[in-house]
């Protein structure tokens, strides 16, 4: 009975993983094909079924029929990384304030301020495209990394605040009170007691920020021209009248690689027990 159950379990996991891994397999094989390999129906085994070629990968780094994506790649890392970092720092501070202190402005209370942050993500992003464009032009920041970082902070901050407010609301207030009793100021309470206990929350918020920032195409596309390109825009630019499936597959793999790496690291950390109970 137990073995049957185990067999079913493994079968289910196997089915699911193949379902998840199949697109990757497709992308990997396609990235080593040429035009001939792609048109001949689905083929999987190199040398036997198709002649492998490095053309798709070469075109990503300045090879014929492609562009060099190294520049956009580093731009993406810089923009996503710094925007996420700033958002997490500001968002965490804001979230702690919203979670622990009472704010009043007319009829506005803490819950309204929190909703205001969340409402930024409810709005369809296209609404912001023209305002952002005009704002950046006024500031002379169109087509620059700094401008993109600013816009991305505006996009990522609500996520950070949202995740962290919820997280701090679940950190017992007694922890703060104990810190005050032990002689901490509100600021030292925050960074000596609350922050070290909030690493799982920070990681979740950081993950969200990095994923949203890394995958954004819309603002990267509308707010830049030629000087500053982010990875998603560069990848789309690879496309031409004859779709280069091989280089598109290669670029898809390259662009998803950092997030997969991140997922592995975070999974390791979280399973090490970063989420155990706080009080008692």
């Amino acid at each position: 009975m137990k073995t049957v159950y185990l067999a079913i379990k493994y079968l289910a996991i196997l089915l699911w993983s193949s379902f998840v891994l199949f697109p990757f397999l497709w992308a990997v094989t396609t990235s080593f094909k040429t035009a001939n390999g792609v048109t001949g129906g689905a083929t999987w085994i190199p040398w036997l079924q198709y002649e492998p070629s490095l053309q798709g990968w070469q075109s990503l780094f300045g090879g014929s029929g492609g562009t060099d994506i190294t520049g956009p790649y580093f731009n993406s890392i810089i923009v996503t990384g710094s925007a996420s970092l700033i958002s997490i720092v500001l968002g965490t501070l804001a979230a702690y304030g919203l979670s622990r202190f009472t704010f009043k402005a007319g009829f506005i209370r803490n819950a309204d301020i929190t909703f205001f942050f969340i409402s930024q993500r409810i709005m369809p992003p296209i609404v912001l495209a023209i305002p952002f464009f005009l704002l950046l032009r006024q500031l002379g920041l169109l087509d620059t990394l700094a401008g993109l970082i600013l816009v991305y902070i505006a996009l990522l901050l609500p996520i950070a605040v949202w995740v962290m407010v919820d997280f701090f609301n679940n950190v017992p207030r007694q922890l703060d009170e104990m810190a005050w009793l032990d002689g901490c100021t509100p600021m030292t309470t925050f960074y000596r007691v609350i922050l070290p206990n909030s690493v799982p929350g920070l990681i979740v918020a950081g993950m969200f920020c990095l994923i949203f920032g890394w995958n954004d195409f819309f603002f990267a596309f509308t707010l830049t021209f030629t000087d500053t390109q982010l990875l998603p825009v560069a990848i789309v630019a690879l496309n031409s009248s004859v779709t280069p499936w091989w280089s598109l597959s290669a670029s898809a793999l390259i662009s998803v690689a950092p997030l997969i790496l991140l997922a592995f690291v975070v999974e390791r950390f979280l399973s090490r027990g970063g989420l155990a109970g706080a009080v008692r």
Binding site: P172, E177, M178, W180, L181, G183, C184, T185, P196, N197
Partner: peptide, 17 residues
């Protein structure tokens, strides 16, 4: 609270995890 220099122990143990 910090300025009053009071020590307090609650019913539920509070520790810095």
């Amino acid at each position: 609270t910090a300025a009053r220099n009071i020590a307090q122990v609650f019913q539920v143990p509070v520790i810095y995890r």
